[in-house]
């Protein structure tokens, strides 16, 4: 919550999401996929949303993009404001298209995310024709330039090829070129490197950083990999069971972890240091059932610090310092624990 409460003398964030709640109707009942999410992103900054698979990361960003299939999906509450204008459930903001023009998006699996029967160049040129009124000729010239911008060799030849003639890494570069074609102010990247080889992963992340420097765009990066977070993020939102449980700068999250789940994630993270390899500790147990989320803290059943109150009522969001906050009873003002003394905040 604190993240959104901007001081009046500070320029408001580019995108502010408040109390986003999303449900899905399924045969098994209603899944409460996202249960009140808040975050904000600033120009030129990267926000990483990190959490286990199924915690609602994709649903969160797809809601902003209007990509939630409805039915079965339903946005039941919340707002998302781009430069102060509501965009949730809308297609345009201030006369301009949101999708593809204000916000670009890339996805996890580049192999299936491009149309197999359409030339790469045509797919990149499409938003330019649709949103910017480019002629077919100019759009395809610009597509080649965008491919070059994404560091794809022999761009003009590549533009005339089909997705099956590309490797995974090259396809993700093409996806980036496509998402950035209309110079959006925000790039949403939903696990952009999860499906790629490690060396290719690094190249794609570097490309995103370089392009961010050139264009000043904000990036919302979704990942379940803390290594990716460390490489990319300015701000981090740690998500668990449909809620953001800890929010702060990358330094806060890595060196002053305040939520037991964040600590668990860090301990479960593989390291390059062979001496510490044996210390790898996966979090035991599994996330709660989102058909019937627990009354108290969602992490209660897995938390080594769980107290009586944790299972009875949900913890509120407690501000720590600056933008750093955590939803955990340990940080309640009356718990008497000084946040920094709780965990060691191991350096990575």
């Amino acid at each position: 919550m604190t993240a959104n409460k901007e001081d009046t003398n500070v320029r408001p964030s580019l995108l502010i999401v408040e109390d986003l709640q999303v449900e899905f109707d399924t045969y098994g009942g209603t899944v409460q996929a996202v249960r009140g999410v808040n975050f904000s992103v600033d120009q030129g900054q990267t926000l990483a949303i990190v959490g286990e698979s199924g915690c609602g990361k994709s649903v969160t960003v797809q809601s902003i993009m209007g990509l939630i299939p409805a039915p079965p999906g339903r946005i039941i509450a919340g707002s998302a404001r781009l430069r102060g204008h509501e965009i949730l459930g809308r297609k345009t903001v201030g006369g301009g298209e949101i999708r593809g023009a204000e916000i670009g998006m890339i996805f996890q699996d580049p192999m299936t995310s491009l149309n197999p029967t359409m030339k790469i160049g045509d797919q990149i040129a499409e938003p330019l024709k649709v949103h910017r009124g480019y002629s077919a000729r100019n759009a395809s010239l610009e597509a080649v330039r965008l491919l070059e911008l994404s560091r794809i060799p022999e761009a003009s030849k590549r533009a005339r090829q089909y997705p099956f003639e590309f490797s995974g890494g090259m396809l993700q570069r093409a996806m980036i070129a496509m998402a950035l074609s209309c110079k959006p102010s925000i790039l949403i990247a939903d696990e952009p490197t999860t499906a790629l080889d490690v060396t290719i992963q690094a190249q794609i992340l570097d490309l995103m950083l370089e392009l961010q420097k050139e264009t000043g765009m904000a990036i919302i990066l979704i990942t379940h990999d803390l290594g990716v977070v460390a490489r990319m993020a300015d701000e981090v939102a740690v998500m668990y069971a449909g809620k953001i449980v800890e929010y702060g700068s990358a330094n806060d999250i890595f060196y002053r972890s305040a939520h037991p789940y964040t600590v668990g994630l860090k301990e479960a993270m593989p390291t390059n240091d062979p001496a510490r390899q044996h210390e790898l500790k996966p979090i035991s147990g599994s996330p709660p059932d989102l058909f019937a989320p627990p009354a108290g803290c969602g992490y209660c059943s897995r938390c080594p610090y769980a107290m009586q109150i944790c299972s009875e009522s949900p913890p509120q969001n407690n501000g720590l310092h600056d933008h750093h906050s955590a939803s955990c009873w340990l940080h309640h003002p009356r718990s008497g624990i000084k946040p920094d003394t709780l965990f060691f905040g191991d350096a990575l």
């Binding site: 993009m65 990509l67 298209e97 999708r99 938003p127």
Partner: peptide, 15 residues
């Protein structure tokens, strides 16, 4: 209709 590339097309704002 439920393929990834149609989702991509939607995310590009294609009508």
């Amino acid at each position: 209709t439920s393929s990834d590339y149609v989702r991509t097309a939607k995310s590009k704002g294609v009508p």
